[in-house]
Write a protein that binds this DNA or RNA. Structure first.
Lengths: 224, 224
DNA sequence: GCAGTGTCTTGCACAAAGTTCAAGATAGCT
DNA sequence: AGCTATCTTGAACTTTGTGCAAGACACTGC
């Protein structure tokens, strides 16, 4: 064993931690080096470049997912569990969404997840095309939700860090948003009612309800 | 009129063009300056910073959307049209997705769109909460689809530009992806059949079918 | 016509960040 | 003990965002 040498695994792990804490634009090689107690450039021996590092981090994170037992539960329970789990992954690692929008990321983790999805749908009586469609639609829906979460996370990070200037900029944006919303009748109605905080304030709940609606649609399809 | 001065509008327009052509990471102030035939830093007189510029570009692009006449068509036709239009916007400007995942973007354009969505659903008999939920779910679904499109667009750009190194890297990734897929039975089955090109090759079609499924779910909800 | 002022543009410069490279350090092998 | 393969380091180059001071231009009032 060479002295106290870096590992690719250790680097990826640290990168994930950094990404979680600082977001995609907060990841930089020098900061990573500092966390690893090594020169920034030492990383380049183990990893081709930054893009590649993000890709490895993505693969790593997919490993967190648990796949439900196919025989133990009905398909809606199973797909709901998978979708919620996926959503959780994105929530824990908001930078993932940006990574997904920026590069085509297909690796072991996604393959494992997709395969299991397809298995669930096919076991439930979906044709192969229907299963494809269902898996794709659900993943897409989760990803879309995750984008909202990621945006919010980025904002939150900015606000908790340099509360000096960012705070008032935020207040400004909020005020402007409100002013805009007031000019549109349906949005206005929502602002003017106590129950205003419906879905905007509870993205997780909106996600789950929407998911069930989507699954309703899928169920209807397979029943026909 | 001062000589040949820059306009904020002109800058934003050019920025959109550059973003469309080069993607989010292809937008830089010096390139923008070159397109505008001015110094890169001249932009800073009209725009606070790069983030702000992207935000303005986003607003600009929302203006492209057409809103269907509420009385002319039934709600499914209307929402389908809106969703497809939205999807088109994301397809034409893939960088939008990344922008949406990176910042909370709420402006005139989104407000206008949201308001009209809500109007459609409420006119169709959805309760207010149901309308909220429906609008959110559909937008989210479109955004998720757009993420896939954006990723592909970024890849395509990379491939058409420096075909030298990127090409073989791409082939490499494809080969690896295939190798992975072969280890998972359901994915493998899809690779081994002529009909393999189902949804992976036709994202637009998958989008529309999935959208209808989601709308089925929503319809069921309002009928109950 | 001319000085003055407000509006915009430019060039310079700096800092942050990705990446390369040559040189150094270390562990194991002979 | 020396050689080599494996890593680490520091310096350096490049790209990119952005601040700043100085300049250029048009329009005003005299």
């Amino acid at each position: 064993m060479p002295r106290d040498t870096l590992t690719r695994d250790q680097i990826v792990h640290t990168a994930v931690a950094l990404l979680d804490a600082e977001g995609l634009e907060g990841l930089n090689m020098r900061a990573l080096g500092k966390r690893l107690d090594s020169a920034a450039t030492a990383v380049y021996w183990h990893v081709k470049n930054k893009d590649n590092l993000v890709l490895l981090a993505t693969d790593q994170v997919w490993g967190e997912l648990e796949l439900p037992d196919l025989d133990a539960v009905d398909w809606r329970t199973a797909t709901t569990a998978m979708a919620v789990d996926l959503y959780g992954m994105f929530t824990r690692h908001p930078w993932l969404v940006q990574a997904f929008a920026a590069h085509v990321l297909y690796g072991e983790g996604k393959a494992r997840h997709d395969d299991h999805s397809l298995a669930v749908y096919e076991a439930a009586g979906f044709t192969r095309d229907q299963a494809d469609q269902a898996a794709s639609a659900v993943f897409t829906y989760v990803l879309g939700n995750a984008a909202g979460v990621a945006a919010t996370a980025s904002l939150t990070r900015k606000l908790t860090r340099d509360d000096t200037a960012a705070e008032e900029q935020f207040q400004d944006a909020m005020a402007k948003a409100q002013e805009i919303a007031m000019r549109y009748p349906h949005l206005r109605a929502r602002l003017e009612t106590p129950a205003a905080a419906t879905y905007a304030a509870a993205p997780d709940q909106a996600f789950e309800v929407g998911l069930q609606i989507l699954l309703d649609g899928l169920e209807q399809q397979v029943a026909a």
